[in-house]
Nucleic acid binder design. Sequence first.
DNA 1: TGCAAATACTTTGCATGCAAATTAAAATAT
DNA 2: ATATTTTAATTTGCATGCAAAGTATTTGCA
Lengths: 145, 145
Amino acid sequence: MNYSQLKLDNQICHRLYMASNSVVRAYRDALNQLDLTYPQYVVMMALWEENKMSIAGLLNKTKIDGGAMTQILKKMTDKQLLSVVIDKEDKRKRLVKLESHGLKLQQQAVDIPDQIRCRFQSINTQEADQLMHLLDKLNLAFENP
Amino acid sequence: MNYSQLKLDNQICHRLYMASNSVVRAYRDALNQLDLTYPQYVVMMALWEENKMSIAGLLNKTKIDGGAMTQILKKMTDKQLLSVVIDKEDKRKRLVKLESHGLKLQQQAVDIPDQIRCRFQSINTQEADQLMHLLDKLNLAFENP
DNA sequence: TGCAAATACTTTGCATGCAAATTAAAATAT
DNA sequence: ATATTTTAATTTGCATGCAAAGTATTTGCA
């Protein structure tokens, strides 16, 4: 029996797992200064792009887990970053809106992408595009199980 | 001020985050049948490759967090998959060794890589190699902060 | 109209990932 | 030889990711 496919070194999955953890870890210092975790930062980015989204919209945009989202939004509400209100048109839905503190934070966050990008210098622009393209393909393939 | 770099769609990081989560999620069904979580499966793969490793060796090979590893090994010990013994030569170290149940499990796991690979059909072999290569570059770059 | 099914979230329980503090043992320095 | 430092793991506290169960509304259909 050939077990070579069970070797960690042969697996894309393990590389993805390590890379994702590494990159999120790399954000930590910058995000600590904004008192944000990585998923909270992802939520902020989604809202900076489009303020006042439904939770379903946020879930779809960020791909964060629904159960986790509830907790994340609770913490962000406590930090006065945003507020969550019931949609009057459909009381099952909730609308998430940035508060002034959350809006202002964008100015402090604007440098973060550059701080991270410099950590990507080992790959050039073309490779980065290639990587994004391949990850898009993967994400699309794994989107609907 | 140009905030376009803060858009989720422009970020490799978020793609990695989504892809890693998706792929780990894709393993779930197969791993449930072996009563393993993904990190536990990673530990098993490391040990199937080289039985009797130190915990430090396992940490280095798997890149799993040290604090988490203690808990993971505890659960795997409870499941009789492996045993952890103090290294007599250096009592700070621990040696991890597969038990018979853990050894036998490899035969059941041998199909898993193929089950996952079929989910990767959206990318061809060449693209998969490219992706592995790019992820290796990233992992190398983020290894030593 | 009335009720079952679908939606949109929330809650709960478990398993990490991670930083920081702690413990134990070995290596080094003075 | 003893004190200091380093190394190897464990522990602790917090924040998710995820599945499964539960709640509140709204839809849809008989």
